[in-house]
Computed example of a mutant assay.
Amino acid sequence: MSSHRSPHRLAVAVAAAAAAAALPALLGTPSAAAKPLPVPAPGPAHHLVVTVSDTGQAADARTYDLYCHPTGGNHPSPAAACAEVSKKTVWGADPFAPVPKGTACTKIYGGPATAHVAGRWSGRPVRADFSRADGCEISRWKKFAALLGTPRT
């Protein structure tokens, strides 16, 4: 192969150099090409506010913040709660979804305890209510026992 440049390669090199020289003008200012895009500030993609009430026991009624990835907040067992919710998270499914309408549930009453979970999980908004009104709701509560706690009856 010869060290001689072909007219085609020379034309391509000249066109590339002209395009690179014109780029700052196309972007508006010469300094615009040198500035990096701003990086979005990290936000809590896994932050839940949990309120448990009507438990019949003053010690069981509480509101706390839970942060996951990294773990933090004032939850009594943040690592266990984060692990539990993470295990329940499946792509395309809402881990906090209510019991589907029309589901046959036993008429077992688990007590007056209620819980409300709000915030963001995996970057998506969460608004979920829990109760212990029947067998399905008790099962759903137990699914999140590390997050919600187990009310004493």
Rank of each mutant, 00 (worst) to 15 (best):
G56A: 12
A18K: 01
A128R: 04
P38M: 01
H4R: 12
T89Y: 05
L66W: 03
H69G: 08
D129G: 09
A146P: 02
A22D: 11
K88N: 10
T89E: 13
A104Y: 11
R152A: 10
C136N: 05
A41C: 10
K107S: 14
S86H: 14
K107R: 13
R152E: 07
P112A: 11
P100L: 03
S31C: 08
P24E: 02
S3N: 14
T89V: 06
D54K: 15
C82M: 00
T29N: 04
P7G: 05
T89R: 05
P40H: 00
K107L: 13
S77E: 09
V14L: 11
H69I: 02
A80I: 04
H47D: 12
R120D: 10
A145W: 15
T63P: 06
F144M: 03
F144Q: 00
A19R: 02
V52C: 08
A115P: 02
T106A: 11
L23M: 05
R5I: 09
L37A: 13
H116S: 08
V85W: 00
S6D: 08
A45R: 13
G56E: 05
D65A: 14
A80V: 02
V50C: 03
A118H: 12
V85Y: 01
L66K: 02
K142D: 14
P38Y: 01
V52T: 08
S131V: 02
T51K: 10
P7I: 10
K107Y: 12
G102T: 04
E137Q: 11
K101M: 09
A33K: 02
D65G: 10
E84D: 01
T153R: 14
R140Q: 06
H69A: 06
T29L: 06
A19Q: 02
T51H: 13
A83M: 01
M1A: 15
T103E: 15
